[in-house]
Amino acid sequence: MNFVATYLLGPFGEMIAYPPGVLETVIAGLGNGFLYALVAIGFVIIFKSSSVFNFAQGAMVFFAALNFAAMLKLGVPWYLAGAFSLLVMVVLAFTVERVVLRPLVGQDGLSLFMATIGVSFFIEGFGEALWGGDPKLLKIGLPEDAIFTIDYPWGEALGLDIIIQESDLLAIGVGLVMVLGLYVFFQYSRVGRALRAVADDHTASMSIGIPLNQMWVVVWALSGFTAFVAATVWGTKIQIEPTVINLALKALPVLILGGLTSIPGAVIGGCIIGVSELMFETYWGQPLFGGATTEWFAFVLAAFFLLFRPQGLFGEKIIERV
């Protein structure tokens, strides 16, 4: 009984006792979730068309942010700096595809995965060698303050005292725009449709004249672009230093939940992970387990889901034949 009281009644009681707290946590969790999703989308774009599990996505986010921040530090106006780092990302993505992955075509997934970890090491070293290893600020005037609802007439009228970080709203907004933009791109543009064809069947798409090599370059450039966007949003929250790369790890459970091939899945997965890990940390982890449960919660949750759906929440059913 004691157990139930501590671990179930307590936390849920607290939620019921102070509902605005739940709202606050959910919004903050969504902000995190969309950030994870922005990284995860980069994974999905590449995995979908070339079955490469690109672990370097986190390092690419770091590299984009590093270029951007270093240019700003040199006094370059933000739009030029942004354009420059976007260009660098596209070039980098192109190079990785040409130099690393092209020679590895046909190898098993594990080798490709390991190669992208190698890329991740290289990018980290390369970025820091270029711009120095000290943490940098990436400030381009995006909103990063906090909104206290109680300061506003409507908040006061509702008696709602919660805090919403503008960077969370930004992440949510940018994430939605990204998903919408990518949807339109894949659905209506010529290249996008070609990419979907490639994703469905390599050989068939080649036979109808889709240049596979060019398509992969497009795909990598696209993931470089998403890395750049993720970096810009991330930069409003924190300094740019190598722990940003760990983001790539958090994107893994997101991918598992969302399925490796679905962009909306990545967003939904991101939201589930972002919200649930923050809720767990706030109501269980911090008061009952000594905190820092965000370290593992996402992974344990993903593992738990996998036990029931081994192909992920939105993944296609795996059919095995001998």
Binding site: A115, I117, G118, E124, G125
Partner: peptide, 14 residues
């Protein structure tokens, strides 16, 4: 060191 190590991994995998 990071760059060379990363490159070597890729090199040997290829």
């Amino acid at each position: 060191e990071f760059m060379v190590f990363g490159s070597l991994i890729i090199f040997f995998l290829i």
